[in-house]
Simulated scan of single mutants.
Amino acid sequence: MATVMELKATARPKSGKGAARAERRAGRVPGVIYGNNQPPVTISVNDRELRQRILAGRFLTTIYDIDLEGKKHRVIPRDFHLDPVRDFPLHVDFMRLGEGATIRISVPLHVVNSETAPGVKRGGTVNVVAHALDLECSVDNIPQYIEADASGLEIGYSLHLTDIKLPAGVKSLTREDATLVTIVPPSGYAEEQRAAAAAAAGGTAAPAAGAAAAAPAAGAAPAAPAAGAAAPAAGAKAPAGGGDKKK
């Protein structure tokens, strides 16, 4: 069951830029509640409280019961806008949630146990390719995050969506072969691998090269006997193919 938070709001009968600026000057953030086949309702919420909720994290994946002058509206935040300079909220949108509704939502991906990965111990770096997953689930079963266990990754290896176990009743909208996490090799790793491969290949080829040098070339005359070597025994046969033919 998803955690439901409380949030107080005030009805905002006037709309438009002028009315929105007046709300901000009063320390409130203009917003709107829409969806579930009901007309939209313009509201405003306390600036400080909304800012704290946003900065706390998981704002867009948290269900809220908005108390609007005594009436409760079960909603989920769908969007908010921040001032590009001062970074305070300018506007917030909430979507109504009907009972048993199914929604599409983006949930954060948390990479765990990366410090124990063999690739990291050998100097590799964890590269998080996807920081969130697009999911479809019921409003009562929204996961706060999805875990990706990187403890078994070597350098150059990756975790894909097919390696992740999603909670029951949660469907992924991301393609199955999507790469989520990979271990990037350290600087100079490729050169070290090539040098090691070359050294291994050189060690294997050296004995073969020595054997080839020891063997006489095809068609070459036999080497002269070493000084002091014993003469062939009397009556010994000439080398095959090397003696004179009888006339």
Rank of each mutant, 00 (worst) to 15 (best):
E154M: 13
N141H: 12
A130T: 08
V112L: 07
E147V: 03
D134G: 12
L135P: 07
V128H: 11
L97Q: 03
E154N: 08
E115N: 11
L97W: 02
E115W: 09
A132D: 12
I164R: 05
I164S: 07
L153V: 02
L161S: 08
C137H: 02
L135M: 10
P108S: 09
V111Y: 03
V120S: 03
Q144G: 14
I103K: 05
V120C: 04
I142K: 02
D140Y: 07
T116P: 00
R122Q: 15
I105T: 14
P143R: 01
A101F: 08
R122A: 15
A132M: 06
L135D: 10
K121E: 10
I155Q: 09
D134C: 11
A148T: 04
V139E: 13
I146A: 05
A150Q: 05
I155H: 08
Y157T: 15
I142L: 06
T125R: 14
L109D: 04
D149T: 00
P118D: 09
I164L: 15
V128I: 15
L159N: 04
E99W: 12
I146M: 04
V111D: 02
P143V: 06
K121V: 08
K121T: 12
G100W: 10
E136N: 06
P108D: 11
A132Q: 13
T125Q: 12
D134V: 11
L159Y: 08
D163A: 01
A132V: 06
Y145S: 14
P118S: 04
G152A: 14
G119R: 03
T125V: 14
L97I: 07
K165M: 11
L166I: 10
G119C: 04
S114K: 12
S158T: 13
H110Y: 08
A101E: 15
S151G: 04
L153E: 03
A130G: 01
V120A: 02
L153C: 00
V107Y: 10
Y145K: 10
I105K: 09
T102F: 09
I146Q: 05
T125C: 00
H110S: 07
D149H: 02
C137I: 09
L109W: 10
T102M: 10
V111G: 01
H160E: 12
P108R: 08
D149I: 01
S138G: 14
V107S: 06
N113C: 01
S114C: 04
A150E: 00
E147G: 03
I155D: 07
S106T: 15
D163K: 07
I146D: 05
N141C: 06
V139G: 07
P118I: 13
E154L: 11
G98C: 03
R104Y: 01
R104E: 15
A117D: 00
D149V: 02
V112Q: 07
H110D: 06
G152C: 09
L135N: 11
